[in-house]
């Protein structure tokens, strides 16, 4: 009945050792592989037919392509499309692993902050490196807004820099906290059912309430899983837009 138990990392088998550290294949890694396999199956299986009138699978694959492509075009412009593989991969990975995590007895990859931080840092470093490569030192104009009096300029620049550095933090914490909090809430309410059920007839009658809540929360979690994948992807697009057009 420990609500944290579901987030436990277990070693499935050891791949080898590297510098004295054990490199293990964990349940987290297994679910990441599962998310990749499911995405690949959807994309490859869906597009294998190449029908003019899409089948259901192909329609899903096309919808997910259109969704991300539209999002990227509307936030980062036509130049943003060179980042389509990155954004699409991130979105599908987060989306599929979140959805898989809703199924009981599964493991939610994005409920571990190390995973979301790795994704957020990937985006953050892409923005910095591509921004510097494409715009050179003009990239730093991002921190210097126009039309600010000289007197308060240092203060504003300091605030802008901190604001920029806080991006990967909020980017990763949002996804992680949503998934963690949602799954713990779900587990706690579900455990109320068994606790009340153990109390006899009156308890079983009372257990209907947490049961209804658990069902409602599962639906909410499904929404949150999709929504957080979407939010993660759109923030990626917005940040990439800064790398492409740093013109403040």
């Amino acid at each position: 009945m420990d609500p944290i138990h579901q987030f436990e990392i277990k070693n499935l088998f050891t791949i080898g050792t590297f510098g004295g550290h054990e490199i293990a294949f964990t349940n987290s890694a297994a679910y990441m592989v599962l998310a990749v396999v499911l995405t690949a199956a959807l994309m490859l299986g869906g597009t294998a037919g190449r029908r003019l009138v899409p089948s259901r699978m192909q329609s899903m694959a096309e919808l997910s392509y259109e969704f991300i492509a539209d999002m990227l075009r509307s936030t980062a412009g036509e130049h943003g499309m060179k980042f389509f593989p990155l954004v699409f991969t991130i979105f599908m990975f987060v989306f599929v692993s979140n959805i898989v995590g809703i199924i009981p007895y599964t493991f939610t990859v994005s409920s571990h902050i190390i995973v979301t931080v790795a994704l957020a840092l990937l985006v953050f470093l892409t923005v910095i490196i591509y921004g510097l490569y494409k715009n050179g030192l003009k990239f730093f104009k991002l921190f210097v807004p126009h039309g600010i009096p000289m007197v308060i300029l240092p203060l504003v620049v300091a605030i802008e820099i901190i604001s920029f550095l806080s991006r990967p933090v909020s980017h990763s914490v949002r996804l992680f906290a949503n998934m963690l909090a949602g799954h713990i809430t779900l587990k706690v309410f579900a455990s109320f059912i068994t606790m009340l059920g153990a109390l006899g007839i009156a308890g079983i009658a009372g257990a209907v309430l947490p049961l209804a809540l658990t069902i409602a929360l599962t639906a909410l979690e499904l929404l949150v899983a999709a929504l957080q994948a979407y939010v993660f992807a759109i923030l990626t697009c917005i940040y990439l837009n800064d790398a492409i057009h740093p013109g403040h």
């Binding site: 901190i162 604001s163 806080s166 909020s170 914490v173 949503n178 909410l220 929504l227 939010v231």
Partner: peptide, 18 residues
């Protein structure tokens, strides 16, 4: 809920990074 999470995490992230 998602909006609330989004807004609060922005504020907390700024303070934490500072």
């Amino acid at each position: 809920l998602a909006r609330g999470f989004r807004l609060s995490s922005e504020l907390v992230a700024g303070v934490a990074v500072g």
